[in-house]
Amino acid sequence: MHLNPNSGMPIYRQLFQQLRQRIGSGQLAVGDQMPSVRELSAELKINLLTVAKVYQLLENEGLVETRRGLGTFVKAGNETKSAGEKRKLIADAVTQVVAEAQHLGLTEEEVSKLIHQRFEEMKKD
C-alpha cells in the first residue's frame, strides 16, 4: 500500500482506491478477513478515523461486510453493483461527453438525440 499524505488527493481516497483495486483484482479474495481498523491505521501510520471512513465506504459499495464481533470480510458477489455505483461509474463518461458537446457548441437536445439513436441501434444488433 502506498499512501502520500502530502498529495492533493485526500488519504482516504488513496486508500479507498487501492483497497478497491485489490478486491477487484482478487488480491483480497472473497471471504478474506480485512485487517482491523486499528491494525491498519497502526501499520500505515495514518489516522484511525481515516481507515474507519474507508471501511465504511467499502461497505457502502458492497465490497466488504462487517460481521459483528468477528471483523470485516471481503464480500461475495462484488460483480453485482448497486444502482448508485453503476451511476457513479458512468458519470465520468457523461461528464466528458457534456464537456465535449459544450465545447463544440452542440445543444442538450442534439446530444440527447444522439444518445437515443445509439440506444436504438444497440437494440437492433
Binding site: P5, N6, K45, I46, N47, L48, L49
Partner: peptide, 27 residues
C-alpha cells in the same frame, strides 16, 4: 499522537508550522 488516539481516544489539538506533519495525522 496517532497511537494515542487509537488506544485512548485522546483528542489532540496540534498547532504547527510544519504542514506536512499536520497533513499526515490531522482529520
Amino acid at each position: 499522537i496517532l497511537g494515542m488516539l487509537r488506544e485512548r481516544e485522546t483528542t489532540v489539538l496540534l498547532s504547527s508550522h510544519i504542514l506536512s506533519d499536520i497533513e499526515r495525522v490531522a482529520d
